[in-house]
Design a protein around this nucleic acid. Sequence first.
DNA 1: CGAAGGGTTGATCAATTTCAATCGCGGTGG
DNA 2: CCACCGCGATTGAAATTGATCAACCCTTCG
Lengths: 259, 259
Amino acid sequence: MSVVSWCKRDNVSNAFVQKLSGLSTLERSETSALEAATSHARRYRAKQDLIREGDEPGPVFVILNGWACRYKILPGGSRQIMAFLMPGDACDLHMNMVAAMDHGIQAITEAKVAAISRPAMDQMMREFPGVSRALYIAQLIDEGTMRAWIVSMGRRSSIERVAHLICELYLRMRNIGLRTEGVFALPLSQIILADALGMTPVHINRVLKELREAGAMALKRGHLEILDPVKLVHIAGFDENYLHRRISQSTRKPELAGQ
Amino acid sequence: MSVVSWCKRDNVSNAFVQKLSGLSTLERSETSALEAATSHARRYRAKQDLIREGDEPGPVFVILNGWACRYKILPGGSRQIMAFLMPGDACDLHMNMVAAMDHGIQAITEAKVAAISRPAMDQMMREFPGVSRALYIAQLIDEGTMRAWIVSMGRRSSIERVAHLICELYLRMRNIGLRTEGVFALPLSQIILADALGMTPVHINRVLKELREAGAMALKRGHLEILDPVKLVHIAGFDENYLHRRISQSTRKPELAGQ
DNA sequence: CGAAGGGTTGATCAATTTCAATCGCGGTGG
DNA sequence: CCACCGCGATTGAAATTGATCAACCCTTCG
């Protein structure tokens, strides 16, 4: 049963439930528990911190709506974004085991975020193996994504880096059912892209121009259009393996530029 | 009870047990279980793969001896190292949940590596809360380390990157009781450093020269000497927070360039 | 209407790669 | 024992990428 049909049938709109049920088969009781756990959400404004570096880790955050990022400010004042969080994404399951956050988490757009307390989380993972399995898979994917970022920053040229990030975000958005046809919203300023890719905003601008003129993609004021998926994937040297759409025992087909 | 005294008393030399008991208080039964689980080790030669990209994930690897790394080869043939593994380090607890490895793991030096089967691992984590807790903390630290790498690659200059990596490795070696006084072994060639830091071997060479001439550190054919810890930390802009030596509830003092 | 925050562009500068040699050490075979 | 080989280390010079500096534009929002 596909995610889409499942959502349609039960009319569920919670991105977290949708994402997790795409990673592991969930019982009805499990989806209910997840929905209950994320029913109290708080709203954050763009640029508002969910938690700051140095803070004591608290509950597990779950993004229900909008975008956020993990980031770190260096002594010199420059910023590095280490991950984008989109609807359905949850923050470190076990972060509470350490004394202090080693990075901050900040809303990029206005965002709706649920906070699941540690005990509630623990209980859910003990009681519901499907939930627990899905969360571990999600975490593995997040780790793979981090490794892919390291590869990008280390060994890809600036244009490859930008293209690669866009491919990643495109697939992640697709996976959670966000609109990705034609021109669609991608709420990342050139400044944010620069902070994520370790470049200057000026250079991001030039690279975007290059990608636009190459007919690969066009990003304009928060809206992205993928003009030629094959070309984009080719520029990026993108290999979707690390997003682990093939989870053990189930197999799916590649989706981006699949001819 | 400190790690050192504990090891002395029971005359234990297993790096895995030593590392985990530094992260969480372990019962005697827990350390025995860990030792039993890692008693069958296999020897790998330098440059031999423990597992390759695309392979199906198998058991959990535990490095008992020597060094290894996670790496990925790009289409163009260049290589990016995403993590160094040293004695006591274990590979992804839940990696078996995905169908294929998105990166390879390779021995850097000759290495002794234990493989713990999935069922054995699961049982141990179910039966021994201390072990389970220590493993989760270890994983959190690994993730923090990856984020720190992203920050380095994105926002630090080449000399800062090199200095930062050395600081990290120094502390990690200290944490597991490897020798770090005077001139000690650091079995990383300039080529490996280049692959880890996203630079060319040529440039690594020049940066190492610069660090040597600045009187911060000297790396010569596999042997490192830290000439001036304070200077090195300063160059790196190193903040050891992310290694989470302060685990919740217990507090320790900084060790590198402290006093 | 004015200010602020992105976005865009050109010119110049600096860091890093690339290319090309050479060196040095450890191991191996004669 | 010694010459040779191979890999890693080292150095110089030229080429390239991306950063920096400095405007200016455009849209949004109070």
